[in-house]
């Protein structure tokens, strides 16, 4: 019986990784669409919304069934607890991708202000955090997430700097207000995605060691 359960646990993890990759892909694609002002690409992100949502429902249900039928303990229990968090965070990251894609539709007819400020750089850093935390979950390793607190500080600082820069441009030229406000929003969404990566990192740490830590 334990073998069957462990095989199911493995499948659960594989499918959760697929969902995490989809969430990451939606965010990356939305940011690329923003940079390239590509409305078609942005629309393709919105089209994946239902898919990631149904993945969330299906995988969460699977977790609850595995708990109900197997009463998992120790590492097995911690894997499921962590997986539930990965599922929720991946959905959120995917949804932020969709929200950013909606912004692309609104602001792509006018040129970028200051080359999108630090948004492309910030997005790269956030994507790296998401990639690393997915790897940490997949391989059950903590090495790639050891610097997450410092990396999250960098993300927070970038959001602040984009905020200040956008304000400056808005004061200079009221016609930039729509674009700059949306830049502030995008920076905020990216920062939230980094927070979700930190949340997953905390849970991977719990899965790996059984100890709770705070990463932010």
């Amino acid at each position: 019986m334990a073998e069957k359960f462990h095989a199911e646990l493995k499948t659960l993890k594989t499918e959760t990784l697929e969902m995490a990759h989809l969430g990451r892909f939606m965010l990356r694609t939305a940011v690329d669409a923003l940079i390239r002002q590509d409305k078609e690409l942005a629309a393709s992100v919105g089209a994946r919304k239902d898919e990631i949502q149904s993945m969330e429902v299906r995988l969460e249900e699977r977790c609850y069934q595995l708990i109900a039928l197997n009463q998992p303990m120790a590492k097995d229990m911690r894997i499921i607890a962590c997986t539930l968090k990965v599922i929720t965070a991946s959905l959120r990251i995917g949804r932020y991708g969709k929200v950013i894609a909606n912004i692309v539709k609104k602001i792509s007819d006018q040129p970028h202000i200051a080359n999108l400020m630090s948004i492309p750089h910030m997005a790269d850093l956030v994507m790296e955090m998401i990639d690393d935390v997915i790897e940490a979950y997949e391989k059950d390793t903590l090495a790639v997430i050891s610097e997450f607190s410092a990396r999250d500080d960098t993300i927070d600082a970038l959001r602040q700097s984009i905020f200040r820069e956008a304000i400056t441009y808005m004061m200079e030229d009221p016609k930039s207000i729509t674009r700059c406000t949306n830049y502030i929003l995008v920076a905020r969404y990216l920062e939230r995605c980094a927070d979700h990566a930190c949340k997953i990192a905390e849970n991977v740490h719990y899965m790996h060691t059984g100890e709770r830590v705070e990463i932010h």
Binding site: A2, M73, A74, K75, G210, E211
Partner: peptide, 13 residues
């Protein structure tokens, strides 16, 4: 929740 020994971990899982 988090046994210290691997043997315990393997048994209870």
């Amino acid at each position: 929740e988090h046994p210290k020994q691997e043997l315990t971990e393997n048994y209870i899982t």
